[in-house]
Design a protein around this nucleic acid. Sequence first.
DNA 1: TTTTTTGGTTGACGTGGATCAACGGGCATG
DNA 2: CATGCCCGTTGATCCACGTCAACCAAAAAA
Lengths: 244, 244
Amino acid sequence: MPVTMNGLKTACSQCNLVELCLPFGMSDSELHQLDELVGARRKVKRQQSLYRAGDPFEAIYAIRAGSFKTDVLLEDGRDQVTGFQMTGEILGLDGISTENHSCNAIALEDSEVCVIPYAKLEQLSHEVEGLQHQFHKVMSREIVRDHGVMMLLGSMRAEERLAAFLLNMSQRFTARGFSAAEFHLRMTREEIGSYLGLKLETVSRAFSRFQEEGLIAVQQKHIRLIDSSGLRRLVQHQTASCGR
Amino acid sequence: MPVTMNGLKTACSQCNLVELCLPFGMSDSELHQLDELVGARRKVKRQQSLYRAGDPFEAIYAIRAGSFKTDVLLEDGRDQVTGFQMTGEILGLDGISTENHSCNAIALEDSEVCVIPYAKLEQLSHEVEGLQHQFHKVMSREIVRDHGVMMLLGSMRAEERLAAFLLNMSQRFTARGFSAAEFHLRMTREEIGSYLGLKLETVSRAFSRFQEEGLIAVQQKHIRLIDSSGLRRLVQHQTASCGR
DNA sequence: TTTTTTGGTTGACGTGGATCAACGGGCATG
DNA sequence: CATGCCCGTTGATCCACGTCAACCAAAAAA
């Protein structure tokens, strides 16, 4: 597993991702107390894993650059993408419960993460007022997000799922200072399908259909949202009837 | 909202649910430090809600008796059950992220919960070594569970989902000292269906099919597992082919 | 450059589960 | 006791999405 470690210390107080990351909302003085938090940085190349299911849990990770997917797999080979993560988001929370990771985290592009040793996080939580609460918020947000995905998988139709996915991506790109209307997806149709509980052909067809209807412009992984309120309408209502 | 509050203090150290609940794995001395944790007990009658989406978040809840479901709903009326909770399990974690609850928690039978004011939990986490870690584990376990549900909803077929559901219920009843093979479901077919992303008719048919095949005996909400390894096989493999 | 591989699109067809509908048993209520 | 409602079961039909297959463009490798 050829991964690169480098000893460069990264101070949260110097990082431009604070507003998206674990230290969000903490005071300046608290922020400086976090300079001990990050153990090291680690680069992960495209397609490589940051951790795999079964690996002993030692740290959580904050994405400094790049993006990841997480997936779980059954013995029979079926797998399911459980999430896509972007800069500032936290990976590895699944490992706390059993002291072993329960999913794989794989880089969708050459990426870099901050390694936050869990022991250090627990320790600093006692010292830095606000860190504990902030960490709880991050975990809670993940739970709420998961409920949203369950809603999507359990009660939405294919096109509604894809529309919801695109709007979610758009919103997260916006939060990172990128265009809300135009972005580049780092994952394949198959990965999107796995996340949305659909086959890649269905995802492809839905993309084509959105394009025909003038909702978006698709060019491979490059997406332009033309009528995002149309997409929003599609998620919430799907015209009439048909509410399965 | 006719709910009953009573001021009866409940000490975790006196509770026979410790092994299932938040204080699991904590030392005796730590346990006694938790006697401040539970603010009050609260009774919730069948069909009543413990909290609703949008309610301000103030506390998490440990189920002392009875059982609950949580669900989220879209504006258009569609709803999705996101989980069923039994004694010792923790409710309300979704509220931390935004300071408001994001789902409804509804009692499936007359129930009682321990109210754990979140502020007190945070405060005690600083004083009681181990509480913080235990709480993190509870949240992490919820995340892992959610991933399992996503797997179920995203890549399993109707009968596999129901088999997985039954095995999960069995395992949780076992952990509570009840029979692994015979139990009473507190939720309707429709609620099971909502949780599993299926219509109630499909759930009913799957039950009938399992009965025909001699895997289980069904009598309304009363279930007896006859061939649980058969169910397990069904979850993991579904004979051959057909891996959608 | 050509070749190969990988990812995406599109069409034809099949099917699992949704939908619609009828019916029946349990359980609560008067 | 009868009445009514909720819940579960079962059948017939439909359709959204999966499956299978051919093809093409882009990217990677040679």
